[in-house]
Amino acid sequence: MGRVIVEFPECREVFVGDKSQGNNRDEQGEYLILLIGDGLQTFSLGGSKNYTPFSQAVQVGAGSVINPQRVVFQRNA
């Protein structure tokens, strides 16, 4: 199992494959540490498509609760 934080400036719904994993941040704006199965996983965000990359395939497995793996999305300029 891998621990992952999905970084994006706003609170957004996170999708792994085609399934929702809830939001990337909690009500206080803190990043939520997601529990993701090891191996190749495709991440994307819900809501407006004003971000890049549109989706990214990531090898999950390197992150822990102390030092989660980071999947970063940028807001389009």
């Binding site: 792994v16 494959g17 085609d18 399934k19 199965g37 090891d38 191996g39 190749l40 996983q41 495709t42 395939a57 090898q59 497995g61």
Partner: peptide
């Protein structure tokens, strides 16, 4: 399903 497409990649843990 997308998880199955991803899991069919050889670079996954062997059990998956």
């Amino acid at each position: 399903p997308k998880w199955l497409t991803d899991a069919l990649d050889r670079n996954n843990p062997i059990r998956r």
